[in-house]
Design a protein around this nucleic acid. Structure first.
Lengths: 193, 193
DNA sequence: ATATATTCGGATCAGTGGTCCGGATAAGCA
DNA sequence: TGCTTATCCGGACCACTGATCCGAATATAT
């Protein structure tokens, strides 16, 4: 890769990160290019689709979340690990507004640049869920896909300005449903991490 | 209102209903106008925004749902009434893909044409929730807004092709969280209506 | 039948994601 | 150092979106 191309790529990624954080994942690609002092075509050559751009942008976050899941699997109780990781996931999405809907679409679209990352994330959650289920701490009628869907739904809530204030509270409600034997009230499942 | 205007309005509404059912709430307004054999400007004169069009389109559905809530309030047990009505709401949204996000935006945007309907719907749910809470059948740490958010999140799940297959199942999971004393397992809360 | 008030819709605008190709430029070699 | 060439850049363009404007068509009232 030529030096100027590399420089443009890096600069575009940094600019895109700022733009997505400010305006959400549906920010205009033209705006990103403009802010980077570059033509739209240059952006689209390095990242042929919006998904490709976001994949490059979120790759490290994805890796951190899966690594966190691995770590929690040995460092915490099955229940705390699961809840803590779910909370991390929902908290993370609040930084990148609008990415949830793209992830939901990507997880069954094998052509999407985000597909692999989403599948990996789902698998990480499934492992934590399995462990909690084996320990008798999570209801056994849900699987990794259900968990992914629940997290996506909660993340989506956080994306909606009118519903976001309730997202934290409702996380507790949903978490209490996932954990068997948990009494009502979110205090039971809060901040394990 | 002139006769030709009335005819165009009615025809547009019928065409829009078909188009939204087929392609979702983000269907191109130009397409609707084209299919109705009318210019885009004509559509936008009758319905100045997409929200206004959807409001006219969904008005009867909204009224039916609120009427259903009133009816259930006297005809069923507090618990059955609440769950049955929630199920009706989520089932209804599956007919109009993409309307959930607009409703979430409309409920706190007093300028939106959908605002009033959304507020009314939330109030109807709040009444059923209150009744269930008074009967000790629903957890007391949630209110009408939380309920609205939960229904919206479940409806959003149904809108996502990859997650929709789990929407029904997860409705049971979430419903079990809303109902105090409900044992795990969705059978406990299924099909009261 | 005429006058008028209302409605209609093509033309147009700014915005979007995406494509193409001539020109600029960096890398490789003598 | 200077030349060649492969690579990269970005303005111009396309089809599409929602939205606006205004001259033309038309239904209604007299």
């Amino acid at each position: 890769m030529r030096a100027d191309a590399r420089k443009n790529r890096d600069h575009l990624l940094a600019t895109a990160g700022a733009a997505v954080t400010e305006q959400g994942a549906d920010v205009s690609l033209r705006d990103i290019a403009r802010r980077a002092g570059v033509g739209l075509a240059t952006l689209l050559r390095h990242f042929p689709t919006r998904e490709a751009l976001l994949e490059a942008l979120l790759r490290t976050s994805f890796e951190e979340l899966t690594a966190k899941a691995d770590e929690l699997e040995t460092s915490s109780s099955p229940e705390d690990a699961l809840v803590s990781w779910l909370r991390d996931c929902t908290a993370w999405t609040t930084e990148y507004r609008g990415v949830t809907v793209l992830m939901a679409a990507a997880i069954e679209d094998t052509e999407s640049a985000l597909h692999a990352s989403c599948v990996t994330l789902r698998a990480a959650g499934a492992r934590l869920l399995d462990r909690a289920q084996d320990a008798g701490r999570a209801r056994t009628d849900i699987d990794g896909t259900d968990l992914f869907a629940l997290v996506a739904a909660l993340a989506w809530l956080g994306d909606q300005p009118s519903l976001a204030p309730r997202a934290d509270h409702l996380f507790g409600v949903v978490a209490s449903a996932v954990l068997t034997g948990a009494v009502s009230g979110e205090a039971e499942v809060s901040d394990a991490g």
